[in-house]
Design a protein around this nucleic acid. Structure first.
Lengths: 148, 148
DNA sequence: TTAATTTAGGACTAATCTGTCCTATTGTAT
DNA sequence: ATACAATAGGACAGATTAGTCCTAAATTAA
């Protein structure tokens, strides 16, 4: 996949938080979205430092979005997890690709990057919520419960 | 980058082989393209098993293409190094993305994948040769010789 | 105040990718 | 035959990512 699994987990988690702004426990999110609990906790803590989430410790604590879902773009989340320039660089890894030495895929990949970047800045967490992430857990349950 | 560094090395190496069909030593290629020698040797051995290169051991040995450069596509090389389905899967890593549960980037990414796939099957090693890879080594020399 | 709950943060393990090293094995030349 | 040069292949080391585990700190409730 183009993004890391941690980024995918972060996107799922943000979309899985309750829309009413109430706090949600990391372990509940993890169970509902079928993500390894301690790993998701780490990722959520990072999102707090990136100011996309806020957290409260102790009973009745948890995580919630710092902004409404429609005001957090997918691009922001990707940038927080993978840095702001994750799409830069030659698709083939040629260190000198560009300008006067374009690789054969330079132009095609440039157009593609622009399109992906645009999509990422337009798509928001709200769009992800519309995906109905419940089927993630259901798909796991149907496929036989415990994994090896 | 979208591909692994090993794939990038493989593409550079194939493009760097002499066009007259003569055999070329792994270490010469590595020095000319500024790629770690033993690692490149491993990659070239894999390309032999993928039938993109043929090799001869001993003095006067080395590697050469099994086919003319214009008959080896970038897609073949990528498939040999990363498997035939390296572009499949949801860009965000959603395991259930597709069909009735598309992610917000599903459509854009689908179009992008098709475009990249097409470019990869159209671009050949010959196109890479036209890049003039000599500047890789020159760029390294200019930037101060030994790396940390 | 005490106990329970939950995030914060660091250390640790496992897997993969990148890269190195050493020892065959094969081929050429003397 | 012998020495030498090159690929073949495996074991090994380092870096990064994925994931686990344990302890500390903060908050609530009794």
């Amino acid at each position: 996949m183009l993004f890391t699994t941690a980024t995918g987990y972060a996107l799922r988690a943000l979309a899985g938080l309750p829309e009413d702004g109430s706090f949600c426990l990391a372990k509940d999110l993890a169970a509902r979205l079928d993500i390894p609990g301690p790993y998701l906790a780490k990722i959520l803590q990072g999102l707090v430092q990136s100011d996309l989430l806020e957290s409260v410790r102790g009973p009745k604590g948890g995580f919630r979005l710092t902004r409404p879902a429609h005001r957090i773009t997918v691009g922001e989340v990707v940038a927080a997890l993978e840095g702001p320039d994750s799409l830069d660089g030659c698709i083939m890894g040629f260190p000198t690709c560009g300008g006067d030495h374009p690789c054969p895929l330079h132009e095609a990949w440039g157009a593609v990057k622009a399109q992906v970047a645009t999509s990422m800045t337009q798509a928001t967490i709200r769009d992800l919520q519309l995906m109905d992430l419940r089927h993630l857990k259901e798909a796991k349950d149907r496929s036989g419960g415990s994994r090896p």
